[in-house]
Design a protein around this nucleic acid. Structure first.
Lengths: 232, 232
DNA sequence: TTCATCTCTTGATATTTATCAGGGCCAGCG
DNA sequence: CGCTGGCCCTGATAAATATCAAGAGATGAA
């Protein structure tokens, strides 16, 4: 794998503080691959041979059961995914597919576990990352169980707005189809939910979202740091 | 804290392999407390001062938002809870209350983090535990998003049956009220769901559940190891 | 015991969400 | 250009789920 990728991977919290030679030995065994859109990288249930890192493009994590499918998360650069399966040497719980042309780094799970065993700093970083992931999914569960679909959408929009530094107008980061699935609803209902939020000053046209009165929307959405703040 | 509790706590995977003196230093700072039923041990949003261990009794982990409440999990002896918050030194995401008279060990979070920093074996165990917790919540999310309430109940019953070593008749481990909340439905609908499962050979009377034809129920429930097997 | 309280159940009804069918719009392609 | 296919929207309808109200049965306290 070309050394040119090392710096940006090294910026990931997971790899930031670890010993240089351990980092290099991880990278030595890894390789980069370019994938076209809509390629299935991982199939849930498969053994977890690699820790994946999205360097460019984006990846959809999704799950299926009994002919149904749901989007669990979208991974943007630069991030890793499926760390837990790698560490546990357990089968993947989610499938992954590229959403666009993407460059993915594949780190053999075996190597990750080996370095994890000998580098306490790396182990520390893995704990931090796993705890973070865990808390994110707990928030997702709370979101699903405590809120209606309209409330989930309202809070999603407020989070996106925060992400856009509070701008009144911003673009949706993912297509509506996938957003619906991510929020646990059908595309048809997402359409109707957008219409339902007009009453709180939300206007949508294509991928453009305009929030005319953030406070009004917040009064309805009642965002909570214990559900919507993914940084803690 | 009395040394008599040490052995059973030591049997927890989290503490099993760690250095004896580290274990003792953790225990030295800890204390045991007996709580009556329905006592709130933790309030979500509070700083995570202690890692909790249920030694006897049982504890309900739940969350609230906007006047609504949902049960996230029930913790039985001997297990820890809210490890992630302890490690991250972040606020609790869930509240906890005793369901019955319970004995709880409280280990100062600070101590846990300190030992975690110096004992690689303990760090290793924490990673394993966190990965496990993470995967459990992912399974919960899949369960919620991919299945109807009837399917969730059917699979819950099959899991309980497995837990009862496949017996055709077994007792519900938690009261129906809480089960409904855990499964993401109302008590009224749980009642109706039980009736709906009669078509697949499920009979319920009080806390007694009888499954007359496990295969028939499985044909309906379609259990999957990637959702229902909490051991991997 | 008796009373009060609580859980559970049931029926009626309302709300939420999904499904089905149709049509508009737009990008990519022959 | 004119297709075609994918996405998105909309309306009608169906299914799933929640709410409300009432009553039966269990439990625990005075």
């Amino acid at each position: 794998m070309p050394r040119s990728h090392f710096p940006e991977i090294r910026t990931l919290e997971l790899f930031q503080a670890m010993q240089e030679d351990h980092f290099l030995s991880l990278m030595r065994g890894s390789y980069v691959q370019n994938f076209p859109p809509q390629i299935e990288l991982i199939n849930e249930g498969d053994p977890s041979d690699f820790l994946h890192i999205v360097v460019s493009g984006s990846v959809d994590l999704f799950s299926t059961w009994n002919g149904r499918e749901t989007s669990m998360a979208t991974v943007h650069p630069v991030s890793t995914f499926i760390l837990a399966a790698t560490i546990k040497d357990a089968p993947y719980l989610m499938s992954a597919r590229t959403l666009e042309k993407s460059r993915i780094v594949l780190v053999p799970s075996q190597d990750v576990r080996a370095v994890f065993d000998i580098d306490p700093v790396f182990a520390h970083a893995i704990v931090a990352e796993l705890a973070q992931c865990y808390r994110s999914v707990v928030k997702t569960t709370k979101n699903l169980k405590l809120r209606t679909s309209l409330e989930r959408l309202a809070n999603y929009l407020l989070r996106q707005q925060t992400h856009a530094e509070g701008a009144a107008e911003f673009d949706l980061a993912i297509e509506k189809r996938r957003l619906a699935s991510f929020l646990g609803m059908t595309p048809e209902n997402l359409s109707r939910a957008f219409k339902g939020l007009r009453a709180y000053g939300v206007e949508v046209e294509g991928i453009k979202v305009h929030i005319s009165d953030q406070q009004d929307l917040e009064r309805f959405a009642k965002p909570s740091s214990l559900i919507d703040d993914y940084s803690t």
